[in-house]
Design a protein around this nucleic acid. Structure first.
Length: 104
DNA sequence: ATATTGACATTTA
DNA sequence: ATAAATGCCAATA
């Protein structure tokens, strides 16, 4: 189990991502103050509470969409709904869609 | 204390 | 391009 405090930090970070933007596990981990992306994936997997946490905005650093308990297909669909173009499980213009917390 | 695992990232070859 | 190795944090056995 992950400390709820960690989860809370992850949720906060994900919610900070503006519409039409996505983020990566690495960015979130940095935003939390860690350097490991694995924690993020695990925490999100424990919750997958897409009602409150838009974890569909979280993708891999290379722009490849992965990880979604509800189904990767669903995640892509949600991304498209946010204005993100996904092509063959990859985000188009990923760099332009990537939102960096880097900072505060 | 160590070993394993997890929706991963980065570097090197 | 892919494959292998290393790093990293937290929880569990």
């Amino acid at each position: 189990m992950i400390s709820k405090n960690l989860q809370k930090q992850v949720y906060n970070a994900v919610k900070t991502v503006p519409k039409g933007m996505v983020t990566t596990y690495g960015e979130i981990s940095q935003a939390i103050g860690l350097k490991s992306s694995r924690l993020i994936g695990k925490i999100l997997s424990l919750n997958t509470d897409f009602k409150s946490i838009p974890c569909y905005k979280v993708v891999k650093s290379n722009g490849h969409v992965s990880g979604y308990n509800q189904g990767i297909n669903k995640k892509i669909r949600l991304l498209k709904a946010d204005g993100i173009t996904v092509k063959n499980f990859k985000i188009v213009n990923f760099k332009e869609k990537l939102f960096k917390f880097s900072g505060k």
